[in-house]
Design a protein around this nucleic acid. Structure first.
Lengths: 213, 213
DNA sequence: GACTTTCAATACAGTTCTGTATTGAATACA
DNA sequence: TGTATTCAATACAGAACTGTATTGAAAGTC
């Protein structure tokens, strides 16, 4: 069958173009990265690009979709890997630790991904072709992660002071913001200190059900 | 004297160019807004632009500086206008209300300013000419507002669970993030609901000194 | 091993933008 | 009113990018 094999070459090309795009989006912004440059970096010519994508927006969409898929996978893996630990966890601190691990698994680890993500997010605000899809992905991810974390939190008898959705948004906001702040200061975002920051925040947002004030 | 009058025409030109730039930065991004377009919108030609600014980065710098000045003014005004109220405020809720008013006075009110601000912030991450200045402005503003709010909070016997600097950063992150989220959903950011969100957050972060748990 | 199909490379036409050098008009000043 | 100066408009040269149409090579099929 021609389809699968052909598609193999094709999807390799697409992958390499997307990789190049993410790197350049981070380095120069979505608008600052020309189609030409993206192709150059991926070691193709523009012929390959226009054979695979309608235009830059189309490429952005593909990047977003790929990102969502990866994030979802990472989340599931993280949840699976702490599945048993949760049942043993008893102290608030332990649970917060675990919940954070799951959350952090969903966040961009490299500063490149962080910046590229912000770029795309901001770009999507005014790109009609991207707004709806990004929104849909966000929502799906939010629910997914919310459910997972909600289960964890419930099982060990914690109560949030905020709805799960808002709490996640909060974490998300703080995490991204502090990452950008670090980059502005010329530092690589420091995982340790950001984790500590989020831990403190979570402690403030959580109430132990067995010890009400 | 030639200087003052000449400067009057000049600074009007600069103002109009900056206004046009902010509008276009919000609508198309810093990189998406060409010098040509900015001039067109301001009803000048590029001659005016290059007579006033070295290049787009230089214009961005001017915009940032102007913004910082305005923010500072707004803060001072807000603090002045609640100066006496603070002395009467007794309940936690009242104090939070006041503190929030001061904080919100420093934040972009229009969604245009919001987006343009985010654009510039992200742009500065990789524009060497802008990074340091933006950082310096941020720091100055942070201290300024931190001191003001710190005074208010202290005077009425509240204690933060976080250092003031981090608390402000948190508010800032959440406020911007929720604004962008709203825009992604095609809604104008809703002042009411964002204020409520921040109120809840603040309540979680604050401990009443007279009623320790 | 010929034949077809798929896909990326090349060539091309057109647009847009930048920055500079020069000109001309308005304003300041005497 | 005449003169000098300031500032924006105009004209220009060059560069970069986009998207399409065509070509050529490699992979897949029989």
């Amino acid at each position: 069958m021609s389809e699968t094999t052909v598609t193999a070459r094709r999807s390799q090309t697409r992958e390499r173009l997307m990789d190049a795009a993410v790197a350049l989006f981070a380095a120069k912004g979505v608008l600052g990265a020309s189609v030409e440059e993206i192709c150059e970096r991926a070691e193709f010519t523009r012929g390959a690009f226009y054979s695979n994508f309608a235009d830059k927006d189309d490429l952005c969409l593909a990047v977003l979709n790929r990102h969502a898929l990866r994030e979802l996978e990472a989340t599931e893996k993280a949840v699976a890997s702490i599945g048993e630990d949760v049942l043993c966890a008893r102290t608030i601190d332990e649970v917060i630790e675990l919940a954070l691990s799951v959350f952090l698994a969903t966040q961009p680890r490299s500063s490149e991904d962080l910046v590229a993500g912000m770029e795309l997010r901001l770009y999507a605000v005014r790109a009609p072709a991207l707004r709806q899809p990004l929104l849909a992905l966000n929502e799906r991810m939010g629910e997914q992660i919310g459910d997972l974390l909600g289960g964890v939190v419930d099982r060990v008898g914690l109560r949030l002071q905020l709805p799960m959705e808002e709490a996640l948004d909060l974490l998300h906001a703080v995490y991204l913001h502090s990452g950008i702040n670090a980059l502005l200061q010329g530092l690589e975002p420091d995982d340790e200190s950001r984790r500590r920051q989020l831990t403190e925040l979570l402690k403030s947002l959580v109430t132990d059900r067995e010890e009400p004030r």
